[in-house]
């Protein structure tokens, strides 16, 4: 338990602190959303209908690089929040841009992975229940990351225009929470999809 004798700027207005709490609650809902996808994926994992299995598809090198990109981006995003609390727009924007680039790298790799599966391995959404589950679970995460990138760009523009105000600070803080959260989801994808896919 930590106490602060200072209220950070993003919490300084009632609206700001309400919205941050609202976002946490939304993340609670997102946990459930992904858990439903995980349960579908895991139930269908063995339903390969004669098509490729997880062991046939997953490449350790590829998914490790994806994982590291996201883990590091979560770190850089966290540094951004520190700069936010120092009211340092430049530092904040710089870290957000780094985060964004790492995120783009991740999305690029994931797209590449999907394209390889579809074109080289003939493993598509329609091939089997297992692959439907795989593409939709991993794709939903990827769609979240892409959405996060667009959102982060909007926040960066607003920060550049208006500086660190209670409103922009709140937005920067919230996009940070979102980004870390997507990292958590990825860790579970890494574990339950990729690593488990090598075992089962």
């Amino acid at each position: 338990m930590e106490t602060t004798n200072h209220t950070p700027i993003e919490y300084s207005t009632e609206e700001g602190s309400n919205k941050i709490l609202g976002f946490w609650v939304f993340l609670g809902a997102e946990i459930v959303l992904f858990s439903a996808l995980f349960s579908v994926y895991l139930v269908l994992h063995s339903h390969t209908a004669g098509g490729p299995t997880s062991k046939d598809l997953f490449e350790v090198k590829e998914f490790m690089i994806e994982t590291f990109l996201l883990l590091i981006s979560s770190f850089t995003c966290g540094l951004g929040t520190i700069e936010l609390r120092r009211h340092n727009v430049k530092g904040l924007v710089a870290w957000l841009v780094v985060t964004l680039l790492l995120g783009l790298g991740f999305i690029g790799m994931e797209l590449n992975e999907f394209i390889t599966y579809v074109t080289v391995e003939h493993a598509t959404l329609q091939t089997s229940a297992f692959l439907s589950g795989f593409f939709v679970l991993v794709g939903t995460h990827g769609a979240h990351v892409s959405f996060g990138i667009v959102w982060m760009i909007c926040v960066i523009i607003q920060l550049l225009r208006r500086g660190v105000t209670p409103v922009t600070a709140r937005k920067a803080f919230i996009i940070g929470l979102y980004w870390h959260f997507l990292d958590v989801v990825w860790i579970f994808i890494f574990t339950a999809v990729y690593l488990t896919g090598l075992v089962l």
């Binding site: 709490l21 946490w24 609650v25 946990i31 459930v32 966290g78 958590v184």
Partner: peptide, 29 residues
Amino acid sequence: QLLMFMHINENHGRGYRILAIAFGFYIAV
């Protein structure tokens, strides 16, 4: 992630925040 990056444990409504995430984990399980 939650403790070191997301500041889940700092003040400003910690109880409600933890409740939301904990309930989420409960339902996920």
